[in-house]
Amino acid sequence: MENSITDYKNTLLSIKDRVKKAQYKAYSHVNSEMILAYLDIGKVLSEKTKVGWGTSVIKQLSKDLQAEFKGMKGFSDRNR
């Protein structure tokens, strides 16, 4: 009986550890992809401002992106 309880506890700990590792990897991958996306967005906006996009266009783009991605941070016009 004692052996089966120990086996159960070890199995539970092993599964919990595996889930936590998977969650960490998933969060890490998502974070990496978001960083790459923000870098790409910054590059696009930098190019657009070089060809004449002004502050008012950037502000409107910011508002449109915030409306589309409610609750997501990083789309303020000051983040350029």
Rank of each mutant, 00 (worst) to 15 (best):
K9R: 12
L12Q: 08
N3F: 10
Q23A: 05
S62W: 03
A26Y: 10
A37I: 15
I35N: 06
K63A: 06
T6E: 11
V19L: 06
Q23D: 08
M34Q: 14
K48H: 10
V57G: 02
I35K: 14
V19H: 05
A26V: 13
L65A: 01
D7M: 11
K70G: 01
L36H: 08
K21V: 14
S56C: 05
M34D: 07
Y27S: 11
V57F: 00
K21M: 08
M34E: 09
K70P: 00
E33Y: 09
A26T: 14
D64H: 05
N10H: 00
Y24I: 12
V44D: 01
G52C: 04
Q66I: 06
I41H: 04
K16L: 10
G54T: 12
K20I: 06
L65S: 00
I5N: 07
S32M: 06
A37W: 12
I41K: 02
S46T: 15
K21A: 11
A37N: 09
R80K: 15
S4Q: 13
A67L: 09
W53M: 13
L65K: 03
Y27P: 03
T55C: 00
D64M: 03
A22W: 02
G52V: 08
I35Q: 10
K70D: 02
R80Q: 11
L65V: 05
I5A: 05
T6L: 08
V30R: 05
Q60K: 14
G42A: 00
D64W: 01
I15R: 06
Q60M: 07
E33S: 13
S4H: 09
R18D: 11
K9M: 11
N79M: 01
R18I: 05
T49M: 09
V51Y: 00
T6R: 10
S28K: 10
T11A: 07
A67R: 07
R78W: 05
V57E: 02
S28W: 04
R18Q: 11
A67N: 11
G54D: 11
T49P: 01
S32L: 06
K59G: 01
E47S: 13
G52W: 02
Q60I: 06
M72I: 14
F75L: 04
D64C: 03
G52N: 00
N31F: 07
T6I: 12
L61P: 02
G42K: 06
S32H: 09
G74R: 04
E33T: 15
A22S: 14
M72S: 09
V51T: 15
Q23E: 11
G54P: 02
D17R: 12
S4K: 13
S62T: 01
R78C: 05
L65C: 01
T55R: 08
S4F: 10
I15K: 07
K9W: 07
G71Q: 01
